Simulated scan of single mutants.
Amino acid sequence: MTSEAPEPNTPPTPRGDTTGPQSEGRTTAAGAEIGALIGAGFGLLFLIINSSQFSTVGRTLVIALGALAFAGIAVFAVRGLMRSRAAASARDRRGPPFGRAYWIIVLIEAVLLFAGARLLSGLGHPELGVAWVAVVVGTHFYALGWVFGLDRFHVLATIVTLCGIGGFIAFFAAAPAFIPVISGVISGFALLGFAMWALVPVDR
């Protein structure tokens, strides 16, 4: 009676091995952690700036929720960055997400934000600034979704852009008080929510 000899030089895969074939298909997209931090930072800033017209209790609640969400995102994003660096040689990455394309997007965004805000102020409608910011920030996430390989950012881009457009609609509907709520607070929570979603692993 004979038995088959084990294959030489084939060490067993330990349980819980995150680099084995069973787990290679699920991981965060390239740049997801940094992208989540960027989105969450914008979201918290939107809440802080645009909740000033709320009551003291309402503003405190909005900012507290935003701060808690940002803190949670920051913890998971930093942990994800540390894990990805430790396992960099075993992960299938598209390449560094912060290449020339990323910085071109950021430069265009900065120019549009500054020029648009100055133009609106010059026309006597500075209250439309937050709506313009939401449109620019929203559309720039379309490009970032491509750079980071994170298609779900396209959904975020659509929501925030629509919030910005909603602010312009509120202005033309003679309801300017709703501009910071629609374009600012709602956009802020959308950014925070999608920053959390960005950290969910995707199929590679």
Rank of each mutant, 00 (worst) to 15 (best):
S55V: 01
F98Q: 12
E4S: 04
G145V: 12
V155E: 14
A5I: 09
A88L: 15
T18G: 11
M82H: 07
S51N: 05
A101R: 12
I49E: 03
A69K: 13
L123S: 06
G39F: 09
R204L: 04
T27S: 11
G122D: 03
W132K: 05
R83L: 15
I169F: 14
V75P: 00
Q53F: 02
F46L: 10
S183K: 03
V200L: 08
F54C: 02
F171Q: 13
I179W: 04
L68I: 15
L150P: 02
V130T: 15
V135W: 09
T13N: 03
P8Y: 10
A90S: 11
E127T: 02
S3E: 13
D17C: 07
G166D: 04
I63T: 07
W197D: 07
E24T: 08
F54S: 04
I108F: 06
Q53Y: 03
G188R: 06
A174K: 15
M1L: 08
T27V: 12
T28I: 15
R15M: 04
S121A: 14
W103Y: 13
A74H: 14
V200F: 11
H125A: 13
V137E: 08
R79F: 10
A175M: 11
C163I: 06
M1S: 10
G166F: 03
I48C: 02
L128H: 09
T28E: 11
E127G: 07
G16H: 01
A195G: 09
A117K: 02
L44K: 01
V111P: 15
I49G: 06
I104N: 06
S52Q: 04
R83P: 08
A143Y: 14
A175G: 00
L150S: 10
T161S: 05
G39R: 03
F153V: 05
F153M: 04
R100K: 06
E127D: 12
G149A: 07
L65Q: 03
S183G: 02
A67R: 02
A101D: 09
V147N: 06
L113I: 15
E24C: 01
T28P: 04
P97H: 05
F46S: 04
P176Q: 14
R93N: 14
R85C: 12
A64L: 10
G43N: 09
F189S: 02
E7H: 08
I104S: 06
V62H: 00
G122Q: 02
L199P: 08
